[in-house]
Amino acid sequence: MPLLFFVVSIGVIIATLNLPKARLGNPNAPVYFPMMLGIFLLILSIVYFIQEWRKTEMEEKEAVQELLQGRVPKLIGLSLLLALGYTLIFEWIGFLISTILFMASLLFLINGKKKWMVNIATALIFSFASWYAFGVLLQVSLP
């Protein structure tokens, strides 16, 4: 974890060096603040690293292990993939159909195949209700 912040802060510092210069006023004015933050984060990540290194017991270890147990990684990974799929088809095939598909597949994934009646019913009711509430009552322009 501290390593991640270390990499991020280095990345930020490099990115700030490549920022365009301001045309009016002090040309470096837009750079100072993010640069400062990058350096601050770099220092913090080192302190964090030392802190973790000195600690003998890892309180987070348990939580991480739980994350890798049983079907949990598959569940989270697939949920994220489904959400990505939803993002890709949302504007293409429209709100209603994509939401029904997304909702139904999520429910099948999480709630299980056995309760298919409940899953499909929830997906349909939810999608129509939200489409009605947002698209018709609130006049949000949905694709």
Binding site: M103, L106, I110
Partner: peptide, 15 residues
Amino acid sequence: PAKILYPVIFVLSFI
């Protein structure tokens, strides 16, 4: 039930 509630919240977040 959590198994229905959480998918609903998930989709609502997107909308």
